[in-house]
Simulated scan of single mutants.
Amino acid sequence: MTWTSVSTVRIALLDDHAVVRYGFARRLAEEPDFQVVGIFATSRELMASLRTTPADLLIIDYALGSNDIDGLNLIRVLKVRFPRCKILVSSSHYNPATVALAMKAGARGFVGKSQELSELIQAVRVVSVGRVHLSGFMAGELDAMMTAGAAAALRSDSLSEHAALSPREREVLRCCLDGMTVTEIAEKFARSVKTISGQKQSAFRKLGVRNDNELFKIQHQIDDL
């Protein structure tokens, strides 16, 4: 596909890893119609800059530092405060459950950090003109997941009525649904990775699910997580 541009795309980058954000910035700067207007390590820095330096498109990490806002709520906040900015997520949390949550919250595209930089460039071009970008593989995974979720919705019983989840198991599941890893959850609550892993697996057994994707499929059946 040949891309033509009528104006420069102003891009702001947010990632808590310096190597990633500066590597992205260098590659984006090679495109004549891209202008990187800011490179940030925290969401606070990004939002402070956006008040005075407009950006057309934001490339954000989904899982920032332990003291920063989580990716899902960051997308929601950005959509409210800066509604004209299009959001593209680039994250190592590249699985159907996390991608679906991000897109539902308002992201217009999602690129895994294991993908080639050419995929990021293509995603920027697609999202900047108001379209949605997902790889063919991920789009297929989401279609399959949503189909399975629709079938599960036909069940009238609420899983949480039978699961008897403990308060700590519930908070671990909430974090899982926000796309956080076991290590990140452990840091957030100052518990050991072993403890968090045990609570997660216990909750999975009670709910009858085997992995994060299956958890996401039944999210609508879990009362007040």
Rank of each mutant, 00 (worst) to 15 (best):
A18N: 07
V19I: 14
V19N: 08
V20M: 11
Y22S: 11
Y22M: 11
F24H: 14
F24Y: 14
F24A: 10
F24G: 00
F24E: 09
A25T: 00
R26N: 08
R27W: 07
L28V: 06
L28K: 04
L28M: 13
L28R: 06
A29I: 00
E30G: 09
E31Q: 15
E31G: 00
E31A: 08
P32K: 09
P32E: 09
D33E: 13
F34P: 14
Q35L: 12
V36W: 10
V36F: 09
V37Y: 05
V37N: 06
G38A: 03
I39F: 00
I39C: 12
I39G: 05
I39P: 04
F40N: 04
F40R: 06
A41M: 09
A41E: 15
A41H: 10
T42C: 02
T42S: 15
S43A: 15
R44K: 13
R44G: 02
E45L: 10
L46S: 04
L46V: 03
M47I: 03
M47P: 00
M47C: 10
A48T: 13
A48S: 12
A48F: 04
A48I: 02
S49Y: 03
S49W: 03
L50S: 05
L50R: 02
L50Y: 01
R51M: 06
R51T: 07
R51A: 10
T52L: 10
T52E: 12
T53Y: 02
P54L: 09
P54G: 06
A55G: 02
D56L: 01
D56E: 02
L57W: 03
I59S: 14
I60G: 01
D61T: 06
D61E: 14
D61W: 08
D61C: 02
Y62R: 01
A63R: 14
A63V: 13
L64K: 07
L64Y: 10
G65T: 15
S66I: 15
N67L: 05
N67F: 12
D68L: 04
D68M: 08
D70L: 05
G71E: 05
N73E: 13
L74N: 03
L74E: 13
L74S: 12
I75R: 03
I75S: 06
R76I: 07
V77N: 02
K79G: 03
R81F: 04
R81V: 02
R81K: 13
F82G: 04
P83H: 05
P83A: 08
R84E: 14
C85A: 15
C85I: 02
K86Q: 15
K86T: 01
L88V: 07
V89Q: 10
S90G: 10
S90A: 15
S91Q: 05
S91E: 05
S91R: 07
S92F: 10
Y94H: 12
Y94W: 08
Y94T: 05
Y94K: 12
N95S: 11
P96Q: 04
P96C: 09
A97M: 12
A97L: 08
T98V: 15
V99I: 12
A100Y: 05
A100M: 14
L101C: 06
L101A: 11
A102Y: 09
A102K: 03
A102I: 08
M103N: 01
K104E: 15
K104W: 01
K104F: 01
A105C: 04
G106V: 10
A107P: 06
G109H: 10
F110D: 01
V111I: 09
K113W: 06
K113Q: 12
S114F: 08
Q115H: 11
Q115V: 02
Q115F: 11
E116L: 14
